[in-house]
Design a protein around this nucleic acid. Sequence first.
DNA 1: ATGGTTAATCATGGGACTCG
DNA 2: CGAGTCCCATGATTAACCAT
Length: 315
Amino acid sequence: MEEEQMTGIPKSSALPPFASTLDEIRTAVERNAIRRGVFLINSLQALGVNNLVSRVAELSSTYDKEEWRDQADKWGIDPEEVLSILDSSKVAYPVFFCSPSAIVETPQLLSYYRNLAMLSNKAMRDIKLSTERYEVSLQAISADQALVVSRYLNSTISNIILARGTVTSQLASEMLYTNIGDSLGGVWRNEIGRLAYEEVLSLLIMHLYQINRLEYIKYTVKGQLVDIEAEALAKQRPRSQELKVSEIDSSDSLQNFLNHLHTNRVKYQEIGLHNGTRLCVDRQIMWTLPMVSEQNLAPIWLLKILDPRIRGRPS
DNA sequence: ATGGTTAATCATGGGACTCG
DNA sequence: CGAGTCCCATGATTAACCAT
């Protein structure tokens, strides 16, 4: 207690006057839930999981049980143990396992079975078995590769089922959506950072424009919808674009432009000022700057450009 | 000692830039 | 164009701390 007085830092009870109120926090949490929720739902629907599920249903009604029993071992499925479990629960084999031929025919199904195997794209990439490009149907998969990947996925799914001992008719979709949810969580975690930048930088950009310092902004956009296929198709990395202030005639039109960018998932890269100052805000980019020294580190630049005593070039 | 709170740590996720 | 990395972020778990 005495120690607390010495530091002058209140430990638990008294919050500083600028602390958010409980109501403010509840409002913020609610907004986050809404934004995150809508984002997750939209992203999930954009994935078109339903198509995969109905394709699996088709396969389930036409598959040849004998063939599967014969090939099971080759396809990475433990025949006696696992298939017996499926039999006793009256679950069709393709609900849980893939055949290489089905994968060759419909490569997008890799997404379904990868998720059943509870594997992320990242994990697949790390073990050199990435299926991403096939999942978005950009590329046909060879029979050889289909077999290799099928074996791995089936084996993983096999062992999950063995570890549990039982399956139910719902289990497949529970596994599917659980794993997809985890992946979408990753997408959202990226959005958070981007949205924060968007929020802060748009205010800064407007301010710089209004005090007549802004020369240009450089940015990339990902586009309006979370369209997996279109995004992968545009494999061409989003081209960096530039808006010059000379193209802008008023504060309102700049604001409109920024709003337009925001609906297209913008990522700001650089903000340029009349006096030559560059705010390199994208920390991913390896910036090559002239005269790297203590003098032109970003925080110092910020102070300089916000200091009204330092004038921008009149335009 | 006990129960309730915070603050680190750890394992992961996807996105995006670089380089060969 | 793929591999290697870095970046922004999350939830669960563990460790540290605090009041009773």
